[in-house]
């Protein structure tokens, strides 16, 4: 409400100005005070006196840390993370580095000058502080490009699933060219599509199948004692179901269905995760989307509902060391 009022006031004031100044076809000064104010990104090191006991005062960017291991064994965190790749996109990034909590960081002199452009349309001349305006323009364009490169590739693949996918739409008009689009297995049903009205739940079938297979194999022949050294399909399914509930995914992330994150975990006898590490540390450090998916997987293992895993106690030796591969393809 208050915002509305303020907004309205601002609007009206501008309207008055417009009227008073007799604006019009001619060049009219716009006032966008906010935009004109330079924002200076400074070293965050000094930002607080926070001491993060857990991690040594690494002056480096935080990002790198390959998914910190489970809470208990903080060692993982110590891993010398490479510089955070993502940050370097926009102007202000550089300062990021400073973020290490280490109080050691000296005063702000370091990045202070960061010309954080704030160019924007500030009609008002008072841009005083930052002299260099030139630098600003160049940035915008490049950014988008970079991102895409990384993201584009993913979507085309995906095999399975019913091919036509177009059927929902009215059959293509007479035009002879029947879009021979490949059977794009289009991504998930998680993506809304008003053209397809028929609800088709893909997920269910699979698990069932697996279960069946599992039971079949388990009961008969596989009754051999050695198999007790492995998790049955049913047992695996139980684990998968549990973790799937804890794992929050974002179906709109670019290339999400092609991202597969392996996490090596050590599980204690109490069935809690003692340690977890992302296997592909290089990609974790260089691919922001991969990192975010990996981190979401790590968070899943930290969730209350997944603190203690659904595993058969007696098969401890079979699951004490495990590699969990997170890939939301079935969701799609």
């Amino acid at each position: 409400m208050r915002h509305g009022l303020i907004l309205s006031a601002v609007l009206h004031v501008s309207a008055v100005l417009l009227a008073v100044l007799g604006v019009l076809p001619g060049p009219k000064p716009l006032e966008m005070p906010v935009q004109a104010i330079p924002i200076e990104v400074v070293d965050i090191g000094e930002i607080t006196n926070t001491r993060i006991d857990e991690k040594p005062p690494e002056p480096k960017p935080p990002a790198p840390r390959p998914a910190a291991a489970a809470p208990p064994p903080p060692p993982a965190a110590a891993a010398p993370p490479p510089p955070p790749p993502p940050p370097q996109q926009r102007a202000p990034d550089p300062p990021k580095l400073a973020e290490a909590p280490p109080p050691p960081r000296p005063p702000e002199p370091p990045k202070a000058p960061e010309p954080e452009p704030v160019p924007v349309k500030a009609p008002e001349p008072p841009k005083a502080p930052e002299p260099e305006r030139k630098p600003e323009p160049p940035k915008p364009p490049p950014e988008p490009k970079k991102e895409q490169v990384a993201q584009k590739p993913p979507e085309q693949k995906q095999p399975e699933q019913k091919p036509p996918e177009k059927k929902p739409e009215p059959k293509p008009e007479p035009k002879k060219e029947p879009p021979k689009k490949d059977p794009q297995p289009d991504f998930n049903q998680l993506l809304k599509d008003l053209t397809k009205k028929e609800p088709q739940k893909p997920a269910p079938p699979q698990p069932q199948k697996q279960t069946e297979v599992a039971e079949a194999s388990r009961t008969p022949e596989s009754s051999a004692p050695r198999l007790s050294d492995r998790l049955t399909m049913s047992e695996q399914d139980a684990l998968i179901a549990q973790i799937a509930q804890c794992w929050f995914i974002d179906p709109g992330k670019p290339g999400i269905s092609d991202i597969s994150v392996e996490i090596r975990v050590q599980i204690g006898r109490d069935r809690t995760v003692q340690r977890a590490d992302v296997v592909d540390k290089a990609r974790f450090a260089s691919d922001r989307v991969f990192r975010s998916v990996a981190e979401s997987a790590m968070r899943a293992l930290h969730k209350e509902e997944c603190k203690q895993l659904n595993l058969p106690q007696e098969k401890f030796d079979t699951w004490r060391d495990a590699v969990l591969t997170f890939n939301p393809r079935d969701v799609m």
Partner: peptide, 25 residues
């Protein structure tokens, strides 16, 4: 500062020096 609660980890942090009226940006 942004923290990962589960991992008890610091994820990122920045500081900006601004005129007070630029708070929204």
């Amino acid at each position: 500062r942004l923290w990962d609660v589960a991992a008890q980890q610091h994820l990122t942090g920045f500081a900006y020096r601004i005129e007070p009226k630029a708070w929204r940006r």
